[in-house]
Structure formats: structure tokens, C-alpha cells
Simulated scan of single mutants.
Amino acid sequence: MCTYLTEKVEINGSGKGRDGYFPLTHAMVYVDHPQHAPYEHTVNIDFLNPSQGAGARIPLELTEEAALALVAAIQNTLATAPPGLASEKAAAGH
């Protein structure tokens, strides 16, 4: 069942598309039918920069288990890194 519920968040980062790296400004997370993954439904995460057009999009289609494992891996990685190491403030001093 598709929920049609979408979480949209502003982000700062970069991603690699077909033409190389581009700035990422948003991420969208939703549960829906995948375009490619061989499952009925997936957790879909789109990293994008709408100002750069349709080509500035990196889509992910994950199973629920894979999405939860990714969340845990991100949380574990951030918990073991020095606080603020990957923050915007740290990048400004770089």
C-alpha cells in the first residue's frame, strides 16, 4: 500500500550524477512502488537539487531492512566521530 506521505528535508552536501558531482539541497523520503528494485514497495530516498533540473537527482530504492540498517550505520558512524567533525561549521574552517 502506498502511503503518499513524503518527508522533504533541506540538506547540504554533494552527490555524483551522470555529469559528475553537483550540490545537493534536498532529500525526499517516501514508501512507494520502486522503478527498478524487484519488490512490491520500497523506501525511496531521492537526493536532489531542483534548481539544476531532473538530472540532478540520485534515487535510492531500499527494502525496509536495508533502510533501517542504513539509519543505524549513519547513527553509529556519527556516534564514533568527534562531535561536529562533519558539520557545516567544521567545513567553514577547512
Rank of each mutant, 00 (worst) to 15 (best):
residue 1 M to N: 03
residue 2 C to M: 11
residue 2 C to E: 14
residue 7 E to D: 10
residue 7 E to G: 07
residue 8 K to A: 12
residue 10 E to F: 07
residue 11 I to Y: 03
residue 11 I to M: 07
residue 12 N to V: 15
residue 12 N to A: 14
residue 12 N to D: 07
residue 12 N to M: 11
residue 13 G to A: 03
residue 14 S to D: 03
residue 16 K to M: 08
residue 18 R to S: 12
residue 19 D to H: 07
residue 20 G to R: 07
residue 20 G to I: 01
residue 21 Y to M: 13
residue 22 F to L: 02
residue 22 F to C: 05
residue 22 F to M: 02
residue 24 L to W: 06
residue 24 L to A: 15
residue 25 T to R: 12
residue 26 H to M: 00
residue 26 H to Y: 11
residue 26 H to C: 00
residue 26 H to D: 08
residue 27 A to K: 00
residue 28 M to F: 05
residue 28 M to D: 07
residue 29 V to S: 11
residue 30 Y to P: 08
residue 32 D to P: 05
residue 34 P to W: 03
residue 35 Q to H: 14
residue 38 P to D: 07
residue 38 P to W: 07
residue 38 P to F: 08
residue 40 E to T: 09
residue 42 T to K: 10
residue 45 I to L: 14
residue 48 L to D: 08
residue 48 L to Y: 06
residue 48 L to C: 11
residue 49 N to V: 06
residue 50 P to S: 05
residue 50 P to N: 09
residue 50 P to F: 02
residue 51 S to A: 12
residue 53 G to I: 01
residue 54 A to I: 02
residue 54 A to K: 10
residue 55 G to F: 01
residue 56 A to W: 08
residue 56 A to D: 08
residue 57 R to E: 09
residue 59 P to W: 03
residue 59 P to D: 07
residue 59 P to R: 09
residue 61 E to M: 02
residue 62 L to E: 12
residue 63 T to A: 10
residue 64 E to D: 12
residue 64 E to A: 15
residue 65 E to G: 09
residue 67 A to S: 14
residue 69 A to V: 00
residue 70 L to S: 06
residue 71 V to Q: 08
residue 72 A to C: 04
residue 73 A to T: 12
residue 74 I to A: 11
residue 74 I to P: 10
residue 76 N to D: 15
residue 77 T to P: 01
residue 77 T to M: 15
residue 78 L to T: 08
residue 80 T to A: 14
residue 83 P to V: 06
residue 83 P to Q: 06
residue 84 G to R: 01
residue 84 G to V: 03
residue 84 G to W: 02
residue 84 G to L: 07
residue 86 A to W: 14
residue 86 A to H: 14
residue 87 S to C: 08
residue 88 E to V: 02
residue 90 A to Q: 04
residue 90 A to R: 06
residue 91 A to H: 07
residue 93 G to A: 14
residue 93 G to P: 00
